Structure formats: structure tokens, C-alpha cells
Simulated assay, not measured.
Amino acid sequence: MPENPPTGPTAAEVMTELAGLEDPRIRAVNEKHGDDHGVNLTKLRALAKRLRTQPELARRLWSTDDTAARLLGILICRPKTFERDELDAMLRESRTPKVHDWLVNYVVKKNPHAEELRVAWTADPDPVVASAGWALTTERVAKKPAGLDLPGLLATVESEMKDAPDRLQWAMNHCLAQIGIEHPEHRARAIAIGERLGVLKDYPTPPGCTSPYAPVWITEIARRQQEKAAPGNA
């Protein structure tokens, strides 16, 4: 993605534009999920597309500690330019779920230090930091499982997920489901763990959506994959 010339907007000008996009109704909805901003994400992405990649502006927006500005900064940054310690500090500064999730998914996963951070974060005593490590582990389970101890991951989930804080529990549950979905040889054990623990069994799921309860999630996605792979459906 090409960069804008140095004559692009200043951080202050961008903050003014973000303030103009603030919608109290959107803020009220976001605050129910722990996010303190009122900017429509479609409009935020449109602004990022107009600004294009600007690493220095992205860092200045991050330094404002404003959620909408940090989300915008994530969208216009260059993920591979961040050092390991810089990303570690940024994750620990991520106060809201949306900033945390976008940082992990849009920046850390594309950074050369992702694996090193995955290992360190998964063992971190802070459950929010640990949830980022589990998110990165789930990514590896799906895309680069070679070298992962899948039985060991299942054992950890079985012993720790039930009593884990919400964000960490959610991340571990996602990893459990991904193991069951992507690795048929571990599917029965993953389903059995989910059934025994009962985590998210009663989670309210809208019609047409798949439940995050691991046994249901695994079974449904595996069924879809089998249907897609069946002769005549290619």
C-alpha cells in the first residue's frame, strides 16, 4: 500500500475529523461491550482507506490513548515495523476489547515477532495478555500447526478453562473448537472436553448463528466441511 507524502494531515487534524464522526447512539451500544468510542467502523475504515499507510501518523494516533484514534492507527500502520517490546507494551496498554482484538489480528499476527510473543503471552499471569497468546495459538492451530503440542493444549484447556476469567476463557474455548474442527484425530477428545466443562453451553445465540459452545461449534463446522468436500459439491 503506498504511503501519503509528508504533507498529509496531522494527528490533531485527524482527531478533529474523528470527533466529527462521533455518534452518541453508537457509543451507547459500544459501551455495553466495554468499548469507549462512538465512531461507526465503516466510516472509520473509509477514513483509513483515504489516509493510506502512514506509520508515523499511526504511532502518534496510538499515543493519544483515544480508542477511535488507536483503531484508526492500527488500520494505517505498517505491522512489520514494530519491535517486540513495542508490541508487548501496546498490548498491555490496550484498554478496550476492540483495540486489543484489532491489535492482535491486524498487527501482531503480521509481525515477525508473533511467535515469540505468542509463547510469552500465553504464559503471562495477566489473563487479558494471556488471551492474546491463546488467540495467536488458535491462529497457528488453523494455519501452521506443525510443532504445536495439540494434546498438551487440550490438557491445559481441560484443566484451566472452566475457571478462567471471561476473555481468557473465550480465547481458550476458541482454541479448543479450532483443534476439534481442524484436526479430526483430536475431535472426539475436544468435544468430550467441551461437554464435560460446559463452558458457554447456555450462551445466547441468535437464529442462524453457530453457538460458541465447543461441542456444537465443532460438530456444525465439521459437518459443513464434509458437505463441501462431498462429491458433486466441489
Rank of each mutant, 00 (worst) to 15 (best):
L72G: 02
E86N: 05
A58T: 07
D85P: 02
G73N: 02
I76T: 04
L71N: 02
W62S: 00
A46I: 10
T53D: 06
S94M: 01
K109D: 04
L51Q: 11
W62C: 00
A68G: 06
L51W: 10
L71A: 01
R95N: 11
R52H: 08
K98M: 13
T42S: 07
T53F: 02
Y106M: 11
A69I: 13
D101F: 13
V104F: 00
K80N: 03
D85W: 05
L91M: 15
D85R: 12
D65T: 07
A58H: 05
F82G: 05
T81H: 03
K80F: 02
Y106C: 12
W102G: 01
P97G: 12
L51N: 10
N111M: 05
D101M: 13
L57M: 06
T42M: 06
D101Y: 14
L87N: 03
E93L: 13
I74D: 02
A69H: 10
V104I: 15
R50S: 14
N105F: 13
L41P: 00
L87R: 07
C77F: 07
L44N: 12
T42F: 08
N111L: 04
R52N: 04
L72V: 08
R84G: 04
D88F: 06
R45M: 06
A68V: 07
I76W: 10
K110N: 09
A58W: 03
N111G: 08
P97R: 03
C77A: 12
R84T: 07
H100W: 05
R45L: 06
D65Q: 14
R84N: 05
C77H: 08
E56F: 07
D101C: 04
P79W: 11
D101G: 05
N105Q: 15
Y106P: 00
A69Y: 13
D65C: 03
D66K: 13
T64Q: 08
A69T: 10
Q54F: 06
V99R: 01
K49G: 07
A68H: 03
L75S: 15
A48L: 07
R95P: 01
R52T: 07
E56T: 05
K80S: 12
T42I: 12
R45D: 11
T81K: 02
H113D: 06
S94I: 01
K109I: 08
F82Y: 15
H113P: 00
W62M: 05
V107S: 01
A68Q: 04
